[in-house]
């Protein structure tokens, strides 16, 4: 009873809460890092150095008036933010934060579940997330959101192809779709896949930027062109859901990248006995540190780069990234068959 019901439920509660808290603090982190890049201070008023800013933001968003435009499609308008938030959260079910550990005299795994088709599950859940954006644009019954949602869905569909192709080359290396097995395969091959598959890693990162609608691919919400994009007509908590979904997706992409390419929860050089003193740091810390580096790069890129134009973005996706990903896949296959 405890093993089948209580512990998984407890894990779900912990992971969901941790995710939501880190999403709100992600917003603060982004504001602080960008402020630092732009030689200003960022939020400083709420709490020391503004660390309570997320609380103030949450309160503000919750008590704001929730407007539904008169000519909007009421039902679709309401469920669109939910559709974009839910996939971002349920992906965490298969992300391994660490291996099995002993906790209160009980063997506990530091992931909610390890299903046989974990990676495929992530990809398929992420593919449902696009509905949130399309429907938001459609239901708003307004021109700017419609343009933005068309941009967004075209962008998400095209970059999904490139990203999925890079995932296939990782699957070929690991020989498994399970997230835990992929980490273990990296341990047994003595190498993070970022070094074995640098091209796939790079394409995954670029595709990740595009799939989370982050700069320089933030066209669907380009404030300067489309006045906020698909969430132009949203306000209050419904807007907040879109906002949080974007950051939750960033964390998802970082966690997946960490698991697939940076050895997940493994410490650096996991097979070198000489460095085993590093084991006193819990495994999940390594996972969090690696993911954090990723998130930092996400923010850094946003502070630095201008934005692509729609046609340039599509050209980059279809004419550069997808051919490269396919070539990488073929080369990986040949090497795998010839050498191993």
């Amino acid at each position: 009873m405890i093993d089948t019901l209580v512990i998984p439920l407890l894990k779900i509660v912990i992971v969901l809460n941790a995710t939501l808290v880190s999403v709100t603090y992600m917003v603060l982190l982004e504001r602080k890092v960008i402020a630092w890049a732009q030689s200003r201070l960022g939020p400083m008023r709420v709490g020391p150095y503004g660390i309570l800013q997320p609380v103030a933001d949450a309160v503000k968003l919750m008590i704001k008036e929730d407007i539904t435009p008169v000519r909007a499609d009421r039902w679709v308008f309401t469920i669109a933010p939910i559709i974009s938030m839910v996939p971002a959260l349920i992906v965490y079910a298969v992300i391994p934060f660490g291996p099995e550990v002993k906790l209160f005299g009980r063997q506990v795994t530091l992931y909610i579940t390890d299903i046989n088709v974990g990676l495929l599950y992530i990809v398929s859940v992420a593919s449902v997330g696009v509905y949130g954006i399309i429907l938001a644009g459609y239901a708003s019954n307004s021109k700017y959101p419609l343009l933005a949602s068309l941009r967004a869905s075209a962008q998400l569909i095209s970059y999904e192809v490139a990203v999925t192709l890079t995932l296939v080359s990782v699957i070929m290396m690991a020989g498994s779709l399970s997230m835990v097995s992929i980490v273990r395969a990296q341990q047994s091959s003595h190498m993070w896949y970022a070094f074995v598959q640098p091209l796939a890693f790079l394409i995954f990162f670029i595709g990740g930027l595009a799939e989370t609608n982050r700069a320089p691919f933030d066209l669907p919400e380009a404030e300067q062109e489309l006045t906020g994009g698909f969430h132009t007509e949203y306000s209050g908590m419904r807007f907040a859901l879109f906002f949080l979904a974007e950051y939750a997706n960033m964390i998802v992409v970082s966690s997946v990248a960490t698991t697939l390419f940076l050895g997940g929860w493994l410490r650096p050089f996991p097979n070198v006995a000489f460095l085993s003193f590093l084991d006193f740091i819990p495994s999940w810390t390594w996972f969090l540190v690696k993911s954090f580096v990723f998130l930092y790069i996400f923010i850094w890129v946003r502070a630095t780069l201008p934005r692509y134009r729609y046609d340039q973005l599509m050209r980059l996706g279809w004419k550069v990234l997808i051919p490269l990903a396919i070539a990488n896949l073929v080369v990986t296959g040949i090497i795998k068959v010839m050498l191993l």
Partner: peptide, 10 residues
């Protein structure tokens, strides 16, 4: 997973 990926998502 394929059902969701191909039909629902694509």
């Amino acid at each position: 997973a394929i059902q969701v990926l191909v039909y629902a998502g694509g």
